[in-house]
Amino acid sequence: MDLLIQQIFSGLATGSIYASLALALVMIFNSTNHINFAQGEMALISTYFAWTLIALGFPYWAAFPLTIVASFAFGVLVERLLIRSFHNAPHLSLVVVFIGLLLAFNALAGWIWGFLLKEFPSPVRNLNTGTPLIAAHELFVLCVTLGLLAVLYIFFRFTTLGLAMRAAALNPTSARLVGIRVGWMLALGWGLAGALGAVAGMLVAPIVYLDPSMMIGILLYAFASAMLGGLNNPAGAVAGGLIFGVVENLVGTYLIGHELKLTFALIVVIAVLLIRPAGLFGKVIVKRV
């Protein structure tokens, strides 16, 4: 029984990391209909940035918010300087741009920081939760990501800027007609996605160690979570992430062993796409032709 509870908690913790990155994917998908394949590698750069700050002597609690702010700016810059020029390009061209970015950021990280595994600190590593059921870092991950999701929910639901971002994503033409600068809203979306990715990267790095291939698996999981929950539904993507984290842990522990977890994830994605192409909670979009 203890093992089961342990596995569920640890699944929720990793699941919430998938959820953060999945939410970053959904945020960009909802406003542009594109999937940013480079989201994971942007998070990787952010995590290395945090690592460098800490190596330079910054305390963790300074490096953490600094990295979030820098990653937000990084996301905005990528959109403004690069993605924006492909605004009217065909869908496939952008896919190529995203894959190019993925490779470029990945190579850049290796070139700057090397390919050796680096240890990334957790601020709660030496703390004891007082129960064997959940490790301190897992509890930390859960608290941070759930807190972050709450903040985002409040932002999008109750602030004028959040409303304007939703409006720009839902109907760009009408958004312009009420005076919303839609281009900037897209850039802000990229910034928020970058910040979310940075949090995901910094939270997962103490678990899997930091190296240039760290985010590739996580991105696949995030992608799978977003697909599972519905690519156009933020709450669905979060639910998808949590479900994924728990289910893969349980399946890995009790059924197939941890080596096949990623395979299992991909099989789930294929199954979902076959049975419910819009995802479990996704909205089916009907287009009149």
Binding site: L163, A167, V178
Partner: peptide, 22 residues
């Protein structure tokens, strides 16, 4: 605009708030 340009997924109140966005 033609077709009214309503944000159909948002509430009436949110539509009005957007109208006063500036």
């Amino acid at each position: 605009p033609d077709g009214r340009g309503t944000f159909t997924d948002l509430t009436v109140e949110e539509n009005l708030r957007l109208g006063g966005y500036l």
